[in-house]
Computed example of a mutant assay.
Amino acid sequence: MSDPKHFDSPRGRRLAYHLTLGAGPLIVFLGGLKSDMEGTKAVHLEAWARQSGRAFLRFDYSGHGLSSGTFEEGCIGDWSEDTFDILNALTTGPVLPVGSSMGGWQALLLSRRMSDRIIGMVTIAAAPDFTEDGYWASFSEAQKAQIETEGQIEIPSDYMEPYIITRRMIEDGREKLVLRKPLVLDFPVRCLQGTADTAVSMQTAIRLLEHAQSPDMRLLLVKDADHRFSDGPCLGLIDSAIEEVLALAAS
C-alpha cells in the first residue's frame, strides 16, 4: 500500500488522501463519523475502481485518520468544507459520491455545493441530520445542560471508544440540516440500509427516501445487515449500486 498524499486546504487543514487515476466520473468515498480512509469499504472500493479503470478518491476529514486536527475540534460544516475543498482542488469533471453513515449526510451537502458536477449518488446507512434527530433528541435534560455549561459530553459507541460530542457540533449541525427543507437530487440515487443497523434506523432511510426529490431514487433494505455493511455480500451490493448509477448516468 502506498503512502498517502497530503492536501493543504485553503482553511489551513492538512488532509491525507489517496487518488486513483482513471476514467470518469470520479467516485469519491465519504466515510462516517470517526472512521478513516483505511476502512473496509473505502479500501475495497479503491480496489474495485482500479480493476474497473475508474477514477477514485478516498480521504480523511480533518480530525480523522491521518489528517490534521482533532475530532473534538470538528463539526459537520468543517467536514463539508474538507470534502468540497479537496474535490474542487484535486479533481475536475463529473463526480459520483458514495457516502457511508455521516458520509451520506456529507454527500447530500455536497450535492448543494457542487450540483453542476454530481451525476449520481450512492448512500450506505445514510445519517442525515443525526446531530439533531439522533444525539440532541435522545439527550436527557441533564445531558443538554452539560453541553450548554461544559461545552461537551461523552457518549458510548457500539463500534469504538466513546464519542466526545461538543456544543459546536450540535449548533453547527442545526445549520446543516437537510430534511427540514426541499432536498432536490436531480440525478439517480441508490440507498442501501441494513435492517440490523443499531446506529441508523430504517425509519431514517425511509424518511430520506420520502423527503428527497429525485427522478430515480431507490432504497434497498438488506435483512440482518448491520451498520458496518462491509461483509462480502454487502460490498457486492455497493459495487452493483455504483455500476447501476454509472450506467444510468451514461445513458
Rank of each mutant, 00 (worst) to 15 (best):
I27E: 03
D60W: 12
R117S: 03
L96W: 04
S52V: 03
D36G: 08
L87Q: 11
M37T: 09
A49N: 11
E141M: 08
K144I: 08
V222C: 02
T131L: 06
G74Y: 05
D224P: 09
G93L: 08
A199K: 13
S201N: 11
S101T: 08
S214L: 05
G24Q: 14
N88M: 09
R50C: 06
A42G: 12
L179A: 06
G63W: 05
L246Y: 00
M114I: 12
S251W: 03
T40Y: 01
H6S: 11
F84W: 07
V184K: 07
E141L: 11
L179T: 07
S67I: 15
E243T: 06
R228D: 04
M114W: 05
I242V: 10
G99F: 01
Q51H: 00
L192F: 04
G104M: 10
H227V: 05
E171D: 15
L192V: 03
S2P: 13
G194D: 01
G236Q: 14
P188D: 00
E171H: 09
S68N: 14
G69V: 15
M102F: 04
E154W: 07
L248D: 00
G74I: 12
H18S: 15
T83G: 06
L57G: 04
L177T: 15
G69H: 10
A47M: 10
L66T: 06
R113Q: 06
I165P: 05
S67P: 15
G194F: 00
F187R: 02
L96Y: 01
D60G: 12
C75M: 10
G232E: 15
E171G: 14
E243H: 00
R113E: 10
V222Y: 00
A199C: 15
T92D: 12
S140H: 06
A145P: 09
R58G: 06
P156G: 03
P188N: 01
C191I: 13
Q193E: 10
V184G: 04
D172Y: 11
P25M: 05
K181V: 12
G103L: 10
E72W: 06
S157G: 09
G103S: 14
L15N: 08
T83A: 09
S80W: 07
K34V: 11
L208G: 09
T195K: 01
W79T: 14
S240N: 06
M114C: 08
C191R: 05
S68V: 14
P10H: 13
D85C: 14
P4N: 09
P97E: 02
I155S: 08
D216H: 00
I238M: 03
G120Q: 03
G151P: 12
A199R: 13
A127S: 13
C191D: 05
T70S: 15
Q51W: 03
M102H: 13
R11D: 14
A55E: 07
A89I: 11
I86W: 07
A49R: 00
G65I: 13
S80C: 13
I86F: 05
T131K: 02
E141F: 01
E175W: 06
P4L: 07
K176H: 07
V200A: 09
F59Y: 13
A16D: 14
L30E: 02
K223M: 02
A55Y: 06
V95H: 05
R117E: 07
E175C: 15
S35V: 08
S68W: 11
L209M: 12
T40R: 09
